[in-house]
Amino acid sequence: MSRWFSIRQDLTPGRHRLLGVFAFLLPLAVWSLFSYVPWLWHPMVRVTDPAGVSWIKPGQILPREDFAKLVEKQAALAAPLPTGAPANPLYFPPPHAVGRALYTAFTTEPVLKGDKWLHEAIFSSIGTIFWGFTLACLVGVPLGIFCGASPAVARLTEPFVDFIRYMPAPAFGALMVAIFGIHVAPKIGIIFIGVFFPLVLVVATTVRRADVSLVEAAQTLGAKRRALVLRVLVPASLPDLYNDLRLLLGSAWTYLIVAEVVGVSSGISFFINQQAKYRNFDNVYAAIVIIGAIGFTTDQALAWIGQRLFAWKNPRPSRLRRFFGRLTGSTASPAPVASA
């Protein structure tokens, strides 16, 4: 036990993987417990037999107290007693229902003609995120790099950027609609605002953290301003910049949900709201899980790519690289060790 929970000691690869799987299994287990064990929570009753009570139907769900009162009343009248089983509220579907919905949500026809299918909604959302995030990066990353490289540019930019950063991006919703209309443009605008301002500050900070002695070394080798930025500061901070962008891509998803209800509601938020209106909460959960899955897999994929792009930053060679190193017999495999 002590070996499992020792402080700041790296886990063995096996435990690393195992615990990662548990991270998902444990919440799922808790969810299952509350869904399938009848005496845990279950504050509602699902009617199985109305026994002649006119205003309830089989399958209807009502609070336990109301049902108990009804049974009491029927008992007082010596009428047949309605029966029911403990149930959870509609907004708390069991895992299997959500699991089924993960499939059926894609196959159910939209409620109204002209509404989008789930996959269309997802693609529309991904498009919104992509454009909002990309535009923010195209402008924000260079600006952030300039701020990190030049204290003068930083002083001229950062106080104001910092000021705007405290304004919540959704607050600009009405303005965005006024400027960009009601369709996809204002949504991209909100994501841009939400990502751009923190991005500039984060990128500037990361570039500022780059080792100044590398800049000085480059200066003594004849590098001038342009080369100092492009050939020293940028490559030196690139691995951290990459991770910054990964984190901000996550926050872009947060702004997406608010952005999509601005103007004409669209994308995955529209799907969620629509399904909630018809009380198909299993579909609602399915959609939320899908957002999580998209975000999580993108992030993991980007992390994996990053580790390989910036191998110089993590000297421990990955198993994949060692494998290919052995295949090709290249010198890159084990670090050559030599004295002096």
Binding site: S213, L214, E216, A217, A218, P235, F310, W312
Partner: peptide, 10 residues
């Protein structure tokens, strides 16, 4: 320099 200051990405 004492601290080498080689460019680690090159």
């Amino acid at each position: 320099f004492q601290g080498y200051t080689l460019f680690p990405w090159l």
